[in-house]
Amino acid sequence: MHLFTIGLRKTIWKILPVLVFFALWEFTARFNRFSTSMIFPPFSTVMLEMMELVKCGLMIKNLADTLFRVFTGLCVGTITGMIIGIAMGWRKVIGHSLSPVIGILYPIPALGWLPLMMLWIGINEMLPIMVITISAFFPVCYNTASGVRNVDRMTVKAAHMLGASEKRILFEVILPNAAPQVFAGLRLSSGMAWRTVLAAEMVAIPTGIGALIMKGESLVRVDIILSCLFVLSILCLIFEKILEALEEKWVGKWKNCA
């Protein structure tokens, strides 16, 4: 009973600030003297517009396009990043050879690749996927390499002494121990992917949530823009929570080790 009360209190404290934020939004939009409801619509108007967009199918269609791009780019980018990151952390030669290249390319903002990709790939479905792949690749690669490199060498020595093969050491010792850092990279990549897809769709692609936002802007429909941003933030949060749950499932039991 006591635990239930504590849990309930925690949930209330998580939800309450969000509710206060929406209430303040609603109140400010309705009663401020400086802008019209067209420029700064209340929260309730944004919600109603979002329902409209869902009903007419526009939101669902654009969201599906965006989700497909994010999911595909994220999968390709993170899997490639993990494989190369593992190779860099596991084998010093590969790490030493690739580190300078990764070091040069990592700081380039994802959108910096956009003009180049437009010329190389053209304006088609592959463009946002490619840019997302690039933006998701670096954080995962960097974090995986560093996670693998930072695994306690003594545990590797112990595994070696106990007769484990290189493959078993990699899969049963190195990777599980590097997992917390790999997950940190995945979270960064996920956030990066959403930012990138939005920008790519706004600049170059006529479909997707980013394109819908641009349409809202051209029609001076702030309610459409805000409902798209709201949906995006919810999706980002869902991705983050999925990763959090996976991390908790795989490393939560032991990652608080002293």
Partner: peptide, 8 residues
């Protein structure tokens, strides 16, 4: 250092 596997 004992080097127990923390994830096991």
């Amino acid at each position: 250092e004992l080097a127990l596997f923390p994830h096991y």
